[in-house]
């Protein structure tokens, strides 16, 4: 276990040794801050006056906060492949994987270590993003349960992106191919959701298979354990595939 954490810590530090993690964090934060301000402005100038005096009117948590997390999920669809592409493909390209393979470390530890290192970055990203809605708590009362559900939902969504990206990164030598294929898979899963909801050709199965449908119920403040199980299965499945793939390398050569 300690070796896994040690690999995770080093992976996390290495992310920040290049400008990549810094610039991605800054970029995502900037775009989301813009989205957040737009939403807040719209709420204050248009929606709030219209809602005055109504019973059970939607509050700021419903409108501004949920929209922010939905945007975050969509932007990360494009950003996460860039973060995951290096994990194993770069090691393969630079032939550094033999360092880990020769050390007395199991493949499970290598894969989990790399994954946990990326999860640390995801936690950091979700926390940084959550500072914006949290700042609203200075001036108004927030729906804490709903905020917590949105944070958990975004974390699980990003963790599932990362697991899929890690697996695709283990398949190839070229980081850019890993990035493109991860992006393709993630967009495909989103298209599944859209096609599941389409008029006339809708399908419950497609909605269930897509990771976006499960994310949306978190955003509505619903914590359904079946959504949680979906994400855990998704993550566990891809991690297992990654371990199998790396193990198979040793046999196939």
């Amino acid at each position: 276990m300690s070796i896994t954490l040690m690999i995770a810590r080093t992976e996390f530090r290495r992310l920040f040794n290049s400008p990549l993690a810094w610039s991605l964090l800054a970029l995502v934060q900037f775009i989301l801050a813009w989205v957040f301000l737009l939403g807040l402005n719209e709420y204050l100038t248009q929606i709030q006056p219209a809602m005055v005096g109504r019973e059970s009117a939607p509050g700021i948590s419903d409108l501004v906060v949920s929209a922010l997390y939905l945007w975050a999920g969509m932007i990360m669809l494009a950003v996460m492949p860039i973060l995951t592409m290096r994990l194993l493909a770069e090691e393969r390209m630079n032939q550094t994987l033999s360092l880990l393979r020769t050390a007395p470390v199991s493949i499970t530890q290598i894969v989990l270590g790399k994954y946990l290192g990326l999860l640390l970055l995801i936690v950091l990203m979700v926390l940084m993003l959550s500072l914006m809605p949290l700042s609203l708590a200075l001036g108004t009362s927030l729906d804490w349960g709903r905020l917590a559900a949105a944070m958990l939902g975004l974390f699980l969504l990003l963790a599932s992106f990362a697991a899929a990206g890690l697996f695709l990164s283990s398949l190839t030598k070229q980081p850019i191919i890993a990035a493109v294929s991860t992006f393709g898979l993630l967009v495909f899963l989103m298209i599944l959701y859209i096609s599941g909801n389409s008029q006339g050709a809708g399908s419950e199965l497609f909605i269930y298979l897509s990771h976006f449908g499960h994310f949306l119920s978190f955003l509505e403040g619903i914590f359904d354990s079946s959504d949680l199980v979906y994400y855990l299965l998704f993550i566990g499945g891809f991690l297992l595939l990654t371990i199998r793939k790396l193990d198979n390398d040793r046999l196939r050569g």
Binding site: R14, N17, S18, N94, Q95, T96, L97, S98, L99, T102
Partner: peptide, 13 residues
């Protein structure tokens, strides 16, 4: 202890 053909070093450390 093993040194492969290509030294397995992380260039960013």
């Amino acid at each position: 202890g093993y040194l492969p053909e290509q030294p397995p070093v992380y260039r960013d450390l």
